[in-house]
Amino acid sequence: MRAVKAVLGLVVVLAAGMGGLYLTERLLAASGPAPAAQGAAAPLRVETVAPEIVTFADAVTAVGTARAWRAVDLASESSGRISRIAFRPGDRVEKGAVLVELDSRAEAADLKAADATLAEAQAAFDRQQSLNRSGSASDAAYQTARAALLRAEAERDRALVALEDRSLRAPFAGIVGLSDLVEGQVIDTTTPIATLDDLSVIEVDFGVPEILLPRLERGQRVELTSAAWPGRVFMGEISRIDSRVDAATRSLALRAEIGNDDRALAGGMFLQVRLVLGERQRPAVPENALTVEGDRTLVMLAEGGTARQVDIATGQQRNGLVEVVSGLSPSARVIVTNLHRVSDGAAVEAVAQERRVDAAPPGPEGGG
């Protein structure tokens, strides 16, 4: 009985083995090599771009303070009581415009007296001059009359200046600042009246490291930005270069001038300064086309249906583009898509990438 069971068990094991071998052969046959009609894998479709010529600049940034081209703290030449204030804070005034008048009755009277004295001296001189020509008067009397006339003219000029000093006039055209004066107030020569700023041109003072001294020259372009005008760039140029380096900071003071016809800038404003030292035009490629491996920067090119990896030297970055210093031909086609699937030597089907222009959102009205 035991022998029969052993024989049956052996038969079952052999049958199971033969069945497994049969199934394995069927599966291998079903997953065998693809038909020869399919051939090799199709080339990978990639988008390419040509290097774009972009202007790059060597620049240094600093912070500066704005100041009016001409600015003065107004004060009176004489003391007295204010009889008239002829301006309002914030007014634009022309050169020579009267701003403040002081009580001038005494000075006007002195001028009249000086005019009378001058008239008498002039008449006396005319008589002596006539007598001297006819020989009826001595030279001494003539010289005395002439000296009296000169003294009378000087006194008259002094009285006229004293009267003019009772009026404060604008030394140049500009904007008048705030004032606390009131009519009837008594002031002296130390009393601050107001400020006067010529804002047609703004000057900006800033400093740069002394190492840049050989590269500095008047007329270099300066770009300035202010928190008061987000997104706006003010253009100016270097107008002054200091003759000394600050021993404490080792920096050199510069002054730039900016046209300010629209009065957007005011004295005392804080500005970010970008001084352009030089410009150059170089090819540039999109930042996403670069691969960095250690100290190597690589790009993948499409050449005759094949991908080729090349080393390049890069420079500055601007608006998503990276400057290519060397290693790339202007006619190269740089692969910018499917880079994670492309390898050096792989077959590719290259198509030119369409440029995508994103419309900028409309800026706020005004403010440039």
Rank of each mutant, 00 (worst) to 15 (best):
V4R: 12
K5H: 04
V7N: 00
L8R: 07
G9D: 00
A16M: 09
A16I: 08
G17M: 12
M18Q: 07
M18V: 13
L21Q: 04
L23W: 13
T24Y: 09
A29K: 14
S31M: 10
G32N: 10
A34M: 13
G39T: 06
A42S: 13
A42E: 15
E47M: 14
P51A: 09
I53S: 15
I53M: 15
V54L: 13
V60G: 01
T61G: 06
T61H: 03
A66R: 07
A68I: 06
L74T: 03
S79R: 12
F87D: 08
R92K: 14
V93G: 06
E94A: 15
E94T: 15
G96P: 12
G96A: 11
G96T: 02
A97S: 12
V98Y: 02
L99E: 13
L99N: 06
L99S: 05
L99H: 06
E101K: 11
D103R: 09
S104E: 03
R105N: 06
R105W: 07
E107Q: 14
D110K: 08
L111S: 10
A116Y: 06
L118Y: 12
A123Y: 04
F125T: 04
D126T: 10
D126V: 03
S130I: 01
S130M: 02
N132C: 06
G135I: 09
S136F: 14
S136H: 11
S138H: 00
A140V: 14
A140G: 01
Q143C: 01
Q143L: 15
Q143Y: 06
R146E: 15
R146W: 04
L150T: 02
A152S: 12
R166T: 08
R166L: 00
R166Y: 03
S167I: 01
S179V: 05
E183H: 01
Q185N: 10
D188P: 01
L196I: 11
D197P: 03
V204L: 10
G207F: 05
P209H: 03
P209W: 01
E210Q: 14
L212M: 05
R215N: 12
Q220W: 05
E223D: 12
E223W: 04
S226K: 07
V233H: 03
E237N: 06
I238N: 02
S239A: 10
R240F: 12
S251M: 10
A253K: 07
A256W: 05
E257L: 08
I258G: 05
F270S: 14
L275H: 07
L277R: 11
R280T: 14
V285Y: 09
N288M: 02
D295H: 13
R296E: 09
E303I: 03
G304Q: 09
A307E: 04
Q309C: 08
G315A: 14
Q317L: 09
S329L: 08
S331A: 12
V334P: 03
S343M: 11
S343W: 10
G345T: 11
A347N: 11
E349C: 01
A350V: 11
V351L: 13
V351P: 02
Q353C: 01
R356D: 07
A359V: 13
P362S: 10
